[in-house]
Amino acid sequence: MTAPVLEIRNLHKRFGQVEVLKGIDLTMQMGDVVSLIGSSGSGKTTLLRCVNLLEDYEEGMVAVAGEQIGYTERNGRRVRLREREIARQRAMTGMAFQHFNLFPHMSAIRNVMLGLVKTRKMAKDEAYATAESWLERVGMADRKDHYPGQLSGGQQQRVAIARAIAMNPQLMLFDEVTSALDPELVSEVLAVIKGLVADGMTMLLVTHEMQFAHDVSNKVVFMQDGRIGEEGPPDQLFYNPKSERLAAFLKSSKF
């Protein structure tokens, strides 16, 4: 049996004295789409960021495709991997950010090409062709020579998603990718993600779009004070919440 795409066991994360993740367990198989929901401060974004080690974690483990991320055991002690190893591991996952974080000094296609050339060591023309096809995929091929400053928020986010998936990651992480967008631009980004779901991409999303989470996920996780409050298939969580906290959260989210 192949290793799960993502395996998180007993994950703890502290910011100084404050423990923001208090023991998280989560397993994802290939093709799974898992949405993390919950009020702000519940730890969902931190959890996502631990998966590609944008945040270090203090206890427990995160493994992508069977490989522990960021740390190893040496003589019974937990040691952080070298930066080069961590960089390689980060490229196993792709991430899209709330604020897009496109590189402003590069055109759309060069944004997508950068990781292909630098990390995947692709030749320039091959990287160009690959980047172009992914921009095509997110409907941005006609704007490939535009700079981020010349694109709308929705367009920037689509380029940012293309930049991440062009790396052919085993797992895509989406961190509130529509939260910074004007309402009329949200749908174009959600449509792109839905297309990726249809392609069978494995993804972990933090989102405030409850209807969207319900529609695309095969599992929804409700985070509550650094723990998993409730998890299960979307219908069960959204229509049959067990806890009052989740019921109250769903009501305030106008689901």
Binding site: N52, L54, T93, K118
Partner: peptide, 16 residues
């Protein structure tokens, strides 16, 4: 900092 994070997320090293 988002710039550094985006660069890290596509596997760039410190120098890259």
């Amino acid at each position: 900092t988002g710039q550094t994070e985006a660069a890290k997320s596509i596997g760039l090293t410190f120098f890259g």
